[in-house]
Amino acid sequence: MLLALAVIGVVYAALSPETGRAEATVSASVKDVTEGKRLFDQSCASCHGLNAEGTKTGPSLIGVGAAAVDFQVGTGRMPAANPGAQMPRKRPVFDDQQTKALAAYVASLGGGPAIPSKEQVDPATGDAALGQSLFITNCAQCHNFAGGGGALTGGKKAPDLHETTPSHIYSAMITGPQAMPVFNDTTVTPEQKRAIIAYIVETREEPNPGGFGLDRLGPVSEGLVGWVVGLGLIVAAAVWITAKQREND
């Protein structure tokens, strides 16, 4: 019975207009959903409930969509080792196939945003210049101008974007994981999302023309280097040439 419902869910999710773009879900087979259900029962149900309806320790997953699962599980944030203010990124517990299965199962429970297609997140086709202006108005206040990440209140932080895959960036924007707001398709259109991805990927891949990038942290690391390396070396030179000097020459 439950299985039948799940299959109907998948079919609905694949056909419903809001997730119509998601080819990934279309391929989700009954086998995936069954496998996903098995993994869910093993690793997720203790916090999210046996039917993903949510418990005191974990939110309901009905309607969060495949994209949310792909992001949370694919970046290793879920399953969480230790529920805290924020789940840290870590080595994923599940492989791609298992993640897809879990995503298919969760999507079957109530639809929601689908995993974006390759084309939707292709940095090569995005407009990085447009992405730049979108990034500094929407993302930089938490993730920093170069995607280096930053501190948030309440023990949370915005992670750096150095490793995040284009697909996960897209999923994060449409699902708003943890402290991040949702940037739905009316706020930031899919084309603009691709532009942002293009900007992030191009920025992190471009070399630092000025030498060592000092972690692209801005004036804090620059000031540290200025004092420790700059002034440090010069004062060492002052000590050295004074010590080498013959007295009353």
Binding site: Q141, N208, L217, G218
Partner: peptide, 22 residues
């Protein structure tokens, strides 16, 4: 040692801000 990579910050618009701005 790279200092003040202005190209990464982008042009100023009053609506934008970056974390880690010092």
């Amino acid at each position: 040692a790279q200092i003040n990579p202005v190209w990464l910050y982008g042009p100023f618009t009053p609506a934008a801000i970056s974390s880690g701005s010092q």
